[in-house]
């Protein structure tokens, strides 16, 4: 449990997907104009990351590695993500029209959100196990959600400020994200495991 929480906190705050690795930047910048749409997309990202990460872990561990087909990883991962998104869309439409209406337009966007594929690729390169990859998926998604609602809230406020015309919109979004990235840097070096006493000494 300690490891689960540790990875969750790490991936949500300390190694934030957007602010430390710049994953999912396209939709992050494009869909952060208003708070409501931003939170819709953020929720969808948490959901899809949490679902695709364990599926991709199982495929990687029980299909690709035993069959020595690791060069097919990209194609299979993206196929899993695309079909999961499609499936989620259909299930939501049938059983939860309210949630579908809220997330509907964002789900297709998520297929090409680098945070989803990036999460799966990081999971492979960091050699997580199944529960760790679930924690990483949920934590990473939560971090992404936090970042996009923060940016959207700031952008909603900044609309009333006197910004140089050439910086309006996109330019300011870049600057704000950069500043947020620096703010999040202050969290680097924190080891939640040590802090909470799960491990007596810092992990090497």
């Amino acid at each position: 449990m300690g490891d689960f929480l540790n990875i969750f906190i790490k991936s949500a705050f300390i190694e934030n997907m957007v602010l430390a690795y710049f994953l999912g930047m396209c939709s992050f910048l494009a869909v952060s104009k208003t708070l409501s749409t931003a939170s819709g997309l953020g929720l969808a990202v948490i959901f899809v990351l949490g679902v695709t990460m364990p599926i991709n872990w199982i495929i990687n561990e029980y299909v690709l590695i035993p069959a020595d087909l690791e060069f097919l990883r990209f194609i299979l991962f993206i196929a899993v993500i695309a079909s999961t998104v499609q499936l989620v869309e259909m299930v939501l439409e049938k059983f939860s029209p309210g949630l579908y209406a809220a997330l509907g337009i964002f789900l297709p966007l998520i297929t090409v959100n680098c945070a989803i594929l990036g999460g799966s690729l990081f999971m492979v390169s960091r050699e997580y196990n199944l529960s760790e990859s679930v924690a990483f998926g949920l934590g990473g998604g939560f971090g992404w959600f936090l970042a996009i609602i923060a940016l959207a809230a700031i952008r909603e406020r900044i609309r009333y400020s006197n910004v140089p015309p050439a910086l309006r919109g996109l330019g300011m979004a870049f600057l704000i994200t950069g500043l947020m990235g620096i703010a999040f840097l202050s969290l680097t070096g924190i080891d939640p495991a040590v802090f909470a006493g799960w491990h007596p000494t810092p992990a090497e």
Binding site: F22, A166, L167, R168, G171, G181, I182
Partner: peptide
Amino acid sequence: LPAAAMFVIAVFIWLQRSYNTKLVD
């Protein structure tokens, strides 16, 4: 730092849109 890339691109956008005002958002 990764954040510097954001600032550099923001400056590029600023310069480009100051030069070509048709592109202003």
